[in-house]
Design a protein around this nucleic acid. Structure first.
Lengths: 256, 256
DNA sequence: CGGTTTATTGATTCCCGTCAAGCAAGGTGG
DNA sequence: CCACCTTGCTTGACGGGAATCAATAAACCG
């Protein structure tokens, strides 16, 4: 078997301290929920945020910590996960620039229900519960936008429940790959490259399986020419076939 | 093995057509998101809702239907689920009076992503996307309440992802039983009775397993005195032990 | 009191998790 | 630039938990 090419994935990250004011403003303006605000309001909103830089693997908050802040990613990727009593990690999501996280404190939750960790070097913006509440009070349109986003995430979470409950490992992996490619994919000579370092272990944590099983499935996919993959990277060569794999009917019992 | 008592569960449901105006007002006033509205506003809001009655097993909407309405349960129980290509059903939730459902249309979703069906005879209130949008525009406080509720559901869904990914069937069932009891439980001589008809199949659909496996686990629980159960009903006799079962550490590797 | 639906239980199969060994990639320092 | 070491990936062997298939029994309904 031929070994895949090496390191197609280049994480280009501005050093954390370069999370500049201009970057912040540009970012906030592009956030879905602030997109409609006029410039001056945007400036006011911006005042309430403070930026923080994190190195790879650095923790942003831990499950159980008092939920004091809401976060928005300016640059880099962040993973949020939970840890099972068995020690197994369950990756809830991998987030990129523009995504928010940190269990919307104002919903009444007292503490974080998950742990957030930098998947790559990252710069995130932080806002306290009170200032954020002020924003919501002042701009009802923003509240509606946030509601839409959260509802969308709820739907995604339900989709995930669905697939964990009803699909075998092979299809779960295919599903996860497609999801990630949809959000983090970038065109590349080797295929649709998933734009974050992604180990077999990460994949396993998202698909509810083990690194070994994930590896077996990935090998299989490579043999079939569906993907190209290497150490901590994956690219889709044939998304359509992967999708077909996920949707596939069990091919029986419909002939009567 | 001694057979459990029969039919502790009496579903007391007003006939669907008795979903009266008074009932509606009382109900809307008790809804978390309308709780703070003054009486006159509540009356205005009430105007926008129309009630619909459903018989057991009747479908309220199907996955893929255009998402035109938001629903609130006045009386009875409703289940929302999805259907896997394999034909397997995945029960997302069983909802009771006061709960809303129907993929908040205003989030931009074009069609329902799940199917809703009456688990018992039910009376539900329906509001179109536009009128509901008006309510949100007019009462920002309501929007925030809704946001809180959706965020809470998101958290519950994540919890579910977590348990499906990391716990064996026995614990998943225990978890589901506790969840249901928390939301639908009523004190009863046989224990904390779950207030909805609940077949082994329903349980299996929630826990991501099969009716047979669910049955085996339930038999086990009965032998251990943790629960009492019969045809389409379950009561918890020892919630604390069930909880302990869910939380249990894997009892190893901590002695050094 | 039949007929139907739901639950139970057993036998069998198999997917996948676990344990374990070996390999490839990539960074580091001489 | 190469040897070395760390870390992540692959692959095999094995075992167990749970799905599947199947038959019986109990509960409910009219």
């Amino acid at each position: 078997m031929k070994s895949p090419r090496k390191k197609p994935l280049e994480i280009i990250t501005t050093p954390a301290h370069l999370c500049t004011v201009e970057l912040r403003l540009r970012l906030l303006g592009k956030l879905p929920f602030f997109a409609d605000l006029p410039a001056e309001d945007l400036e006011a909103v911006n005042q309430k945020f403070r930026e923080v830089g994190f190195q790879v693997e650095e923790y942003i908050y831990h499950e159980g910590d008092p939920a004091a802040d809401l976060f928005v990613i300016a640059e880099g990727m962040v993973r949020v996960f939970q840890i099972a009593p068995s020690g197994r990690r369950v990756l809830l999501d991998i987030l990129a620039a523009g995504d928010f996280f940190g269990n919307l404190p104002m919903l009444g939750a007292e503490e974080y229900t998950d742990t957030a960790q930098a998947q790559t070097p990252a710069c995130v913006l932080r806002v306290g519960a009170d200032p954020f509440q002020q924003i919501l009070n002042q701009y009802p349109g923003v509240t509606q936008k946030v509601l839409g986003l959260v509802a969308h995430r709820l739907q995604a979470a339900n989709e995930r429940v669905f697939l964990l409950s009803s699909l075998p490992v092979e299809r779960r992996i295919a599903f996860i790959l497609l999801k990630l490619a949809g959000r983090l994919g970038q065109e590349h000579e080797v295929g649709l490259l998933i734009g974050t370092p992604l180990s077999r272990e990460n994949l396993a944590e998202m698909a509810g399986t083990t690194p070994e099983s994930a590896s077996r499935v990935m090998s299989q996919f490579q043999k079939e020419g569906l993907i190209a993959a290497g150490r901590e990277w994956v690219a889709l060569k044939n998304p359509a076939s992967l999708q077909a794999l996920v949707d596939e009917e069990p091919l029986s019992g419909n002939l009567m």
